[in-house]
Amino acid sequence: MNYQEPLFRPPAKAGSLIFQVAYGCPHNRCRFCGMYKRVRYRLRSEEEVLAEIADAGRRHPGTARVFLADGDCMALPFDRLKRYLEALNRAFPSLARVGSYANGSSIQNRTGEELAALRRLRLHTLYLGLESGSQEVLDLFGKTEQVEGMIEAVLRAQAAGLRLSVMVLIGLGGRALRQPHIERTAAALNRMQPRLLSALRFIPIPGLPFPPGFEPVTELEAVEELHELIKRLELDHTVFRANHTSNPVPLSGRLPQDRERLCRELECELASGTLDRNGPGPLPVEL
Rank of each mutant, 00 (worst) to 15 (best):
N2K: 11
N2E: 08
Q4C: 07
Q4A: 11
P10A: 12
P10S: 05
S16A: 15
S16D: 14
S16C: 12
S16L: 00
Y23W: 15
R29I: 03
G34K: 07
G34T: 04
M35K: 13
M35P: 07
R38S: 15
R38W: 12
R38T: 15
V39M: 13
Y41C: 02
E48W: 05
D55K: 10
D55M: 08
R59F: 02
R59E: 11
H60W: 14
P61L: 07
T63Q: 06
V66S: 03
V66E: 09
F67D: 00
F67Q: 04
F67K: 05
A69M: 02
D70W: 04
M74S: 13
A75Q: 07
L76Q: 13
P77K: 12
F78G: 04
L85A: 05
L85W: 03
L88E: 06
L88Q: 04
R90V: 14
S94A: 15
L95T: 01
V98H: 03
V98R: 09
S100D: 04
N103R: 15
G104Y: 03
G104A: 07
T111P: 07
E114S: 10
L115H: 09
A116H: 09
L118G: 04
R119V: 04
R120N: 14
L121H: 08
Y127D: 06
E131G: 03
G133Y: 05
E136S: 11
F141G: 05
F141T: 02
G142P: 10
G142M: 08
E145T: 12
V147Y: 03
E148N: 13
G149F: 12
M150W: 06
E152M: 13
A153T: 12
Q158N: 10
A160K: 06
G161H: 12
G161P: 05
L162G: 05
R163P: 00
L164A: 13
S165V: 00
V166E: 03
V168G: 05
V168A: 09
A176I: 00
L177I: 04
E183M: 12
T185R: 01
A186N: 01
A187W: 08
L189N: 04
N190K: 06
M192V: 00
Q193I: 01
L196D: 00
L197C: 06
S198I: 13
F202N: 02
F202K: 03
I203F: 01
I205M: 11
P206W: 12
G207E: 06
G207W: 06
P212E: 15
G213N: 11
E215A: 15
T218H: 03
A222Q: 04
A222K: 06
A222D: 05
V223P: 02
E225F: 03
L226H: 02
H227T: 11
E228I: 00
L229H: 06
I230W: 08
K231V: 02
D236L: 14
T238S: 10
T238L: 07
V239I: 14
R241Y: 00
N243G: 08
P248A: 07
V249F: 01
V249I: 14
G253P: 06
R254P: 06
L255W: 06
Q257I: 12
R259W: 02
G273D: 13
R277L: 13
R277E: 14
N278R: 15
P282N: 13
P282Y: 10
